[in-house]
């Protein structure tokens, strides 16, 4: 079995579906009635984008590219925590 051609087909299928899902998340972020909906959409969007970055990094054959996924999944967590702290307690300390 030729790994490279099979993986190319898998990547083609997955990239189309992931792009469509990104578009749907973006539409929810535009429509969202409250701020919490937008932040929920950002949460999903960033985790899925990190997964897509790892899959795409195998195709590009570069480990420098794939290391951006760790940073993305860690920083996106910060927005949730700061929003929660602002809404519940009114004050934020950095």
């Amino acid at each position: 079995m030729n790994f490279e051609s099979v993986f190319l087909n898998v990547l083609y299928f997955a990239a189309v579906i992931y792009t469509f899902a990104f578009v749907l998340y973006g539409i929810r972020a535009i429509k969202g009635p409250t701020t919490a909906d937008i932040i929920l959409a950002v949460d999903c969007l960033s985790f899925d984008m990190a997964a897509f970055m790892v899959v795409l990094g195998i195709y590009f054959k570069s480990i420098m590219l794939a290391s951006g996924a760790i940073i993305l999944s860690l920083w996106a967590f910060m927005l949730d925590i700061y929003y929660t702290k602002y809404v519940l307690y009114g004050e934020v300390e950095v």
């Binding site: 973006g26 972020a29 701020t35 937008i38 932040i39 959409a41 950002v42 969007l45 960033s46 984008m49 897509f52 970055m53 795409l56 590219l65 951006g68 993305l72 996106a76 927005l79 929003y83 602002y86």
Partner: peptide, 19 residues
Amino acid sequence: LKALALSSVQSTFFALGFY
């Protein structure tokens, strides 16, 4: 606050663009 959330969506999309 809503503007900040929208701006973070924008920066997440641009990160994938740079990638």
